[in-house]
Design a protein around this nucleic acid. Structure first.
Lengths: 226, 226
DNA sequence: ACCTGAACACCGTTCAAGT
DNA sequence: ACCTGAACACCGTTCAAGT
């Protein structure tokens, strides 16, 4: 009915940056990084593959943009107040959960080093580090250590689930076979990995991730006390 | 001259797993992950692309194998004695340098999650963690936190240099433009990143990396004191 | 048992031609 | 200004045919 308003009568199905990115996220969630294809994407958007290039530079930019909207969404959700330490922990967990739900995010975050999504993240981490009272000189190192750790865990887990997916295995089944492989390693060369293989299938990734965050936070606290 | 010895007179140019992996490493070093192609590889080995499949399952396995030989080489070099803490630090730095010299290694290590190269690494880290006196319960979390951090930094730096390479920029020039971009961010939204943008081009990646390792080690030490 | 290399089924990206 | 879709220059991988 709003036909009189100047010329906002854009077609219902008009292409746009956001519509493309949303469709890309759906493809990535459904089929992993291999599932995102300009042909599949243009089919879903009912257009030709060339049309997408009117809105996005190339596939890399598309992946980064998809990652960016999810990071932004995740950071928006995790406002909260409480202590800086608690803020860092909940922020980290929110990212862990997002990367767990969207296994392609980890790799995308790595690829986007220095670009928008990691800058968003670095900002939030940096503000929290400042609030923690870390002295100016150490803020950058602390924030980027957290960033690298978070991204490292995320992309590692992503690779695991991609590996399992490629072989058509469920995650726990994959961890089971991995644990069996580890248990059969040479006892002289791999004592630690062998000793730890039994707890591999049952262990809680999320808790381990948080334990790593706590180690960094503990290191920051003990450095301040001195 | 050794022509009499049974039938070890294999052709000088015979294909083998090791020869293929060595050639792959050269291609990866020269052209990054995009530089590794079955066609380029078979050309360098003076054979057809199909021949490689007699020795290696697929491209993923080739990448993991290439990464594995470099990780093994790096770990062999870094024996040393001294304190467990010093051992962890030198081990971490050796890996940093290897990933700096071979920027594709970081991504390959991620892709090989749970497989040979990361198992090697986890073993060494785990042994050092044990030597550090970390109680049994916390050993896995500590070792994998270090692993994830190391891999996170490595793949992050790799992405940076890949990004710069794709645009034909030298690394420092790339950091310069990145720093300028950061300085122009919205002051209300990005106070931390802006405040830190100036030190971006001049900062020492290697020192920052080590600072992160020290934070984790500090966290471990303070957890033990309690 | 290993190699050869053409062929297959895809990619991302470009670009003339349309509207 | 945007879309269309055929075409280009690649990929990884397979497989009949050779040795």
């Amino acid at each position: 009915m709003a036909t009189k308003a100047r010329n906002i009568q854009r077609r219902e199905d008009a292409l746009s940056h956001d519509r493309i990115v949303d469709a890309a996220i759906e493809l990535l969630d459904a089929g992993g990084e291999d599932g995102l294809t300009f042909r599949a994407l243009s089919e879903r958007l009912a257009t030709g593959p060339g049309a997408i290039y009117n809105h996005i530079a190339d596939k890399d930019a598309l992946l980064v943009a998809a990652c960016d909207t999810l990071v932004a969404r995740t950071l928006d959700a995790g406002k909260a107040g409480s202590s800086p330490r608690a803020a860092i922990r909940t922020l980290a967990l929110a990212l862990f959960d997002a990367m767990d739900a969207h296994p392609w995010m980890g790799a995308a975050l790595v690829r986007a080093a220095g670009q928008s999504p990691s800058v968003r993240l670095l900002e939030r981490l940096g503000q929290a580090i400042q609030a923690l009272g870390v002295p100016r000189k150490g803020q950058w190192a602390a924030a980027s250590a957290l960033l690298h750790y978070i991204v490292g865990v995320g992309s590692h887990n992503a690779a695991q689930s991609q590996f399992a997916r490629a072989r058509g295995l469920a995650r726990d089944r994959h961890l089971g076979t991995l644990s069996a492989q580890w248990a059969q390693l040479d006892a002289a060369l791999y004592p630690f990995v062998r000793s730890v293989s039994a707890q591999l299938p049952a262990h809680d990734d999320r808790a381990d991730f948080l334990a790593g965050i706590d180690l960094v936070l503990g290191g920051l606290a003990s450095a301040q006390k001195k």
